[in-house]
Amino acid sequence: MSSIHAPHLYRVVLIDDDILLHKLLEMYLFEHHYQLQSLSCGEEIRDFISQQTPDLILLDIMLPGKDGLHWLNWLKHNYPNIPVMLLSAKKSAEERLIGLEFGADDYLTKPFHPKELLIRIRKIMRHPTLANKHVTYQIGSNLFNPAHEHLERNNQLIKLTTQESSLLQFFCQRPDEILTRDCISQALNGNEHQPLNRSIDMTINRLRKKLGDHASNPRYLCTVWRKGYRLTLAP
């Protein structure tokens, strides 16, 4: 029996208040295996990103409310591993330099040809550091390597399961944030947390042990009463 595998869809978020550009890119990128989700202003990114991690963010500079450079700074501070491409109608070299200084991974001037955007997106996705292939996180005395699904402490390798590694990476991308079980379940499983399902709590307990944390008084993966969990990278 043969089986057909649907191609993996990369998740790209466009933050721009131009609905025609949304529609055009949504249709074009979908044909090339990128699922475009659209936000009309930067203020929407906080909620969005707490639910799911996109593979790439396309960020317009001229936005209603706070401008794209503000949100670029916020993203690079809170989610340094998510690549961001700035879009701007202005050709100002100064603005471009500020964007790149703030950590933008690329910069595209409007109007652009969608094919040029696609080429640049593919280039970013291929970049090893941006594709999260070599990213490591320091959690106290632990060095967490998501690509190899292991922790390293005192020159010892501690193997993680895929579920443990995914959960820990989700926390590492949001240090010091309180993450509810719903939000964790949505991000990892794509569905709401079922109150009787203890799998997240059990995975947290196993991670605490592997991190060398105390079960009753954890330093890294702390329980926030009636809310969820929070990771502190350097207590």
Partner: peptide, 10 residues
Amino acid sequence: AHRFKATAHL
């Protein structure tokens, strides 16, 4: 005009 131009060129 800025906003319109982003797709109008096509």
